[in-house]
């Protein structure tokens, strides 16, 4: 199943502990090849979010830590790197539930994503324009408070805000959550285009297996903090008849 392209991300046998004792990941191993879209599937509580947060180092903001294992980004060990530093190096996470800054305007939300690199005003304005080209709808709504926008628009704000960090690898946590199928389609199309035209690699956690497998190149199934199956998206999609074996509740979707 291994391809020869160089991995942009390599996660090896990662264990994560929250607090003193909650073992949320028990040895996750996965690869994201440069320029690919990889899906992380699994039931509620399987460990998808924790995997993404382990990579972005945001677990530490939740009193979690990588207790064992190794994470590499383009060959460099980043297991214990600090979150802000990783953003500058090109890893950005879009959190589950979008988490826009509700009281800030749409534009302020997006622009805030650009601060990490301390860009000049011009660079910031150019990057903002680029985000508006991807999400024209946000330009119309730029002066509204982010919290007053619809779920789909908020997902776009969150992705646009993350794009401002100029990521090489984007970690997307359940982008389809709570969205109507048409909107999910729209979001996934944008992800695919970002991947093809801007060369951003994606690792996305999804419970919406159908959509995720349609757009991903590779997929990993997480169960109980471990990878229980993986392969090309096409292979896994062909195995959906046995989905109940490893996808748990999702099979009934």
């Amino acid at each position: 199943m291994m391809t020869t392209a160089a991995p942009i991300l390599a996660v090896d046998n990662v264990h994560v502990i929250y607090g003193q004792s909650i073992l949320a990941l028990r040895g996750i191993t996965l690869r994201v090849n440069e320029g690919s879209i990889v899906a992380l599937l699994g039931a509620n509580g399987a460990g998808k979010t924790t995997t993404l947060k382990a990579i972005s180092s945001l677990v530490r903001a939740e009193r979690g830590r990588v207790a064992q294992g190794e994470i590499r980004f383009r060959g460099d060990i980043i297991t214990h790197a600090d979150a802000a530093g990783l953003v500058r190096r090109g890893i950005v996470q879009v959190l589950e539930g979008r988490r826009c800054f509700a009281h800030l305007t749409v534009e302020q939300n997006i622009v805030a994503g650009g601060y990490a690199h301390r860009p000049s005003r011009r660079v910031l304005a150019d990057d903002l324009d680029r985000v508006y080209t991807w999400f024209p709808r946000l330009k119309q709504r730029r002066r509204t408070a982010a919290g007053l926008n619809s779920g789909g628009e908020q997902q776009m704000i969150a992705i646009g805000r993350a794009l401002m960090t100029r990521p090489k690898l984007m970690l997307l946590d359940e982008p389809s959550m709570g969205l109507a199928p048409m909107l999910v389609e729209e979001i996934f199309e944008i992800i695919r285009n970002l991947n093809r035209r801007e060369g951003v690699s994606f690792l996305l956690a999804e419970q919406n297996t159908g959509f995720a497998l349609r757009y991903a190149d590779h997929a990993y199934v997480v169960e109980n903090g471990q990878v229980s199956a993986h392969g090309t998206a096409a292979d896994l999609a062909a195995r959906t008849d046995m989905a109940s074996l490893y996808l748990g509740a999702i099979a009934t979707d």
């Binding site: 945001l58 903001a61 953003v87 879009v94 959190l95 826009c100 805030a112 994503g113 601060y115």
Partner: peptide, 21 residues
């Protein structure tokens, strides 16, 4: 920038950290 970053943190600490603040 500083003001907006401050308000971002006030709104959502984790989201602010996720974009490198």
């Amino acid at each position: 920038r500083i003001g907006i970053a401050l308000r971002a943190v006030a709104d959502d600490v984790l989201a602010a950290q996720s974009i490198g603040i």
